[in-house]
Computed example of a mutant assay.
Amino acid sequence: MPRHPSASKPRRKRVRWGAATLALLAVAGYVTLREVAGAGRSDCSVAAGGSRLGLAQDQAANAATIGAVAVSRDLPERALTIALATAMQESDLRNLSGGDRDSLGLFQQRPSQGWGTREQIVDPVYSANEFFDELVKIPGYSRLPLTVAAQRVQRSGYPQAYAKHEADASLLAGALSGRAPSLTCRVVSGTTPGDPARVTARLTREFGARIMRPYAAAGLPDSGTAAGGTSAPAPGGGAADPTVTVPGDSAGEPTGLNAAQHGWVLAQWAVAHAAELRITEVRYRGRVWWASRSDDGWTSDSRPAGQAYGDVRITVQH
């Protein structure tokens, strides 16, 4: 018996709509899976050239620390790309307390292989420096394929695995080097006060002592001198000031970056570490990021004149 037309059409429509819905869900699932597999909860992101990478808070902070160490050593963006791709493969940019055999940390370095003690390796600044120590020993490393350069440092059993992270690592390195600044994070505002001295200590440790010159940080004694040889005042007027001011456009600093890049490196480092350091506001070159409006990312800064255009101003919860 033939099916009644009025019964078959709705059924065919339901089948077509069902297929279309499944297709959309499959695409959405792929995008979500890429985010989840790469970062878990994507509270931070970088974007450029139509590409986007999602990162969890701890991943963004660890990546920014690797970037800070690269800048402190005056290394090129290619070195940072190699390091980030390696850490993406080895630890998913997470500071792991264990791994294969005695592997530890961001780069899964092993105490038994001479990388340092357990306590040292789980320090991201130490482990990044150790990675770069070995990378710069490789002649022409910046011209080698990423897999080759990474493998000569890591001696991995799966050397080709680094290649799959190169595009994401390049995107992230472009942001963290200040060449294509786009890093932003969603941060939940809180009431726990931050400590400007702690921010300064972290900046100094990750970027090197020269990063604070010619300014002293809020909450710390002045250790630099301004142009002309006079002592530079603590920004904002003293230890109670919640803002740390860092010279972003630091002419004369041998970082290998132009002035704006150098400042953006610092500004994006502050956003990446905002959650842990209780940073509520970052300002640089007419742009501002607020924790309370972090969904907006970087926006135009309408604050009246009164701060140096090239200074990076990092304000903590108070």
Rank of each mutant, 00 (worst) to 15 (best):
A63I: 04
W17A: 07
S189A: 14
Y126M: 00
R12A: 14
W264P: 03
R287H: 15
R213M: 09
L176R: 04
R12H: 11
P111V: 08
V31C: 14
G38C: 06
T21C: 09
C44S: 04
G140N: 06
L146V: 12
R118S: 09
A217T: 05
V246E: 03
G40P: 04
A70E: 01
L183E: 01
S182I: 08
Y162S: 00
R118F: 04
G116I: 06
E281P: 02
V122H: 06
V46Q: 04
P196W: 04
G237R: 10
G228F: 11
L25N: 09
T230K: 15
W289A: 02
L146I: 12
G194F: 02
T21R: 09
R155Q: 09
M212A: 13
A209R: 15
C44T: 06
D43I: 01
R205T: 08
A274H: 04
S292V: 07
N95M: 14
A305N: 13
R293Y: 15
R303G: 09
V36Q: 15
D249Y: 10
R73L: 09
R94P: 04
S51T: 13
S294I: 07
I279W: 00
D58H: 10
R118M: 04
L266M: 13
G140P: 00
P254N: 15
G174Q: 03
W289L: 06
S8Q: 10
D222R: 12
G40N: 11
W289C: 01
V246A: 01
S302T: 11
S292H: 11
L24N: 07
P233H: 08
E206T: 05
H4A: 12
Q307Y: 11
T184P: 02
R210T: 14
A291E: 13
D133V: 05
G178H: 02
D74L: 08
A60Q: 05
G248V: 03
A239D: 15
V153L: 01
A226V: 13
R213S: 13
S112A: 14
H273E: 13
A251L: 10
L277D: 00
L93M: 00
T86G: 00
T204L: 11
E166K: 04
A149H: 03
I279Q: 03
R293L: 11
Q317H: 10
